[in-house]
Amino acid sequence: MKGFAVTAQMERLKISNVSLTYPGLHSNEAVVALRGVNLTIESGEFIVALGASGCGKTTLLNLLAGFMSPTEGEITLGDKRVEGPGADRGVVFQKHALLPWLNVIDNTEFGLKLQGVPKAQRRERAVRNLALVGLQDFHNHMIYHLSGGMQQRVGVARALTCDPAMLLMDEPMAALDALTRESIQELLLRVWEHTHKMFFFITHSVEEALFLGSRLIVMSPRPGRITHTYELDFNRRFLAEGNARAIKSSPDFIQMRETVLGIIYGDELQVSQELAHA
């Protein structure tokens, strides 16, 4: 059996000069979703992608997951080129995408079932990961009886159970209320610390991005590209001190938040002006 976190620590994800153009009906209608993106993610990094609508952050996640292929450039994980979806990259979706005919534990071990892992072994790993997201008492609940926050926690446990090198999350908290959001942010950081996997997380929320990320990439639209990168340590401070509100209201956090907001609003303003003139 593969080690739980050992294999993951060896990996590195490399995005080399990646562009993606959506073909339109005519050549002049083609949309450049991403142009010339370069990014290297080391094992144990928590990358957060932030940007205005249309900046290509979901496209980038889809490329990493292998749901799309870049029109230029390449993505490698370890020494393997990413050419399609695979169990080495787990995905948590904005809407949970769980299977309603299965209960919580069967959903969690579903990936291992697809991979043909024996029942006892997959159950053991599912139990462990459900405990990690705090759902040890909900094994036999049906998905549609859970709250939105619990559904997303099952989604995280399900992705972790396949022991991917990387966890991709596409605004998994966008539909959750503010209180649930905060508690799941804290939970995610604890899971990240425990598993030490690469996390790639997309969000609209600047505060969420700053709190979660060890590296923040700010993306800009037209064409979608990475414009700013920040190294952050608010997540480490939270894991050491445990007081999320104190960190989120600290002067350096607020200063950082205003800086990033300034960039994002600049982009939003530019887009709306372009639309007004179009």
């Binding site: 997951a65 749901f67 399609g84 169990a87 787990g90 291992l112 697809l114 399900r158 992705a159």
Partner: peptide, 19 residues
């Protein structure tokens, strides 16, 4: 998303149709 999730957990096309 349900189909993508199953592919991202190592499912094959046949498994995804069946399961």
């Amino acid at each position: 998303e349900q189909i993508h999730a199953a592919y991202a957990m190592g499912g094959t096309r046949g498994q995804i149709i069946r399961h």
